[in-house]
């Protein structure tokens, strides 16, 4: 095993790339859960974003249009969930699962003719002399625009929830929909918007996988990333900054295990591939002491709202 082949600069740079899809999806889901809705269909929305973005990217040749279509695709899937859970008041857990199963099937149907094709990928930004700096040039100034967009989004979500009136209403709806309803806020409308935002974020995350990180389409390519995003929201106890930390920690593990595989570590490949999932479980256990108090969880998370009751 040759550990010297692993360069810390590249490790950190690729960690940020590996974390970005999960960061986007987790951020969206956090907003949804802040509004009191538990959407377990992140995986399904992500993979639909991955395929719709990939198709749009291949057909038009523009990755930007790909990301745009992916956000629409993710949001459309999310609104399907929204109509079922908010209007038809179906069980959120079951509907989220259905969204994932449906998304996985539909995406591989759409992706039939797109296996093995390469799409135009996003170029890394060139910021002149900044990008040529040692270490910082690559880690801070050498990424594609979506990485910066995702970081910007972390800040925007944090500021939105903390400082704006709309953010306060959204949190109120998540903490007590009955109180929010009594105050005259439109619980269902707020939740629908949050759900659509979460879907768009998940779609962007999926498209980042198929257009930048891999960049190819393979069936089931999200491989649990959506579920890991859900775990990161719990890990982050519903705070935007901690979502960022969680996603980057997780990205670090993914990249590290890939590097160890290529460096020929004397650990079975299968154990390394399973490591991200095992680590997620361990993290869930470790944070349980904190989560167990239940103070951070939005109080009305997952509860259906019907105005007549």
């Amino acid at each position: 095993m040759d550990l010297s082949s692993i360069s810390p600069t590249l490790l950190i740079a690729s960690l940020m790339v590996a974390a970005t899809p999960i960061l986007l999806a987790a951020l969206g889901e956090m907003v949804v859960e802040k509004a009191g809705v538990l959407n377990l269909g992140v995986e399904g929305m992500m993979i639909m974003g991955a395929i719709s973005g990939f198709i749009a990217g291949v057909e038009t040749g523009s990755p930007w249009l790909g990301f745009f279509v992916a956000a629409i695709g993710g949001a459309a899937m999310a609104l399907l969930f929204g109509v079922l859970t908010q209007v038809l008041l179906s069980n959120q857990v079951a509907t989220g699962l259905a969204l994932t199963l449906f998304g996985l099937g539909l995406s591989s149907l759409f992706g039939q003719g797109y296996v093995g094709i390469k799409a135009n990928s996003l170029k890394r930004l060139d910021m002149g002399f900044l990008s040529d700096l040692p270490f910082f040039g690559r880690v801070v100034f050498g990424h594609d625009p979506i990485v910066y967009l995702s970081l910007l989004l972390v800040f925007a979500v944090w500021a939105f929830l903390k400082f704006t009136r709309a953010g306060l209403v959204l949190r109120a709806v998540g903490e007590s929909h009955d109180a929010a309803h009594a105050l005259g806020y439109h619980v269902r409308r707020v939740r629908m918007m949050a759900i659509a935002f979460g879907g768009a974020c998940a779609g962007l995350g999926g498209a980042y996988l198929s257009l930048v990180r891999v960049p190819q389409w393979t069936e089931g390519m999200t491989a649990g990333a959506g579920w890991i995003a859900l775990a990161i929201v719990v890990f982050a106890s519903w705070r935007a900054g901690r979502v960022l930390i969680g996603a980057y920690l997780f990205g670090g593990i993914v990249v590290l295990q890939l590097n160890l595989q290529t460096a020929g570590a004397k650990v079975p490949v299968e154990l390394l591939s399973a490591a991200p999932y095992l680590v997620t479980i361990i993290v869930l256990v470790l944070i349980s002491g904190r989560a167990g108090r239940g103070g951070d969880t939005p109080a009305d998370l997952g509860k259906p709202f019907h105005a007549s009751t």
Partner: peptide, 11 residues
Amino acid sequence: FGTNEILVSLM
């Protein structure tokens, strides 16, 4: 530990 069985069983 009170972990969520949905996430753990799926992982």
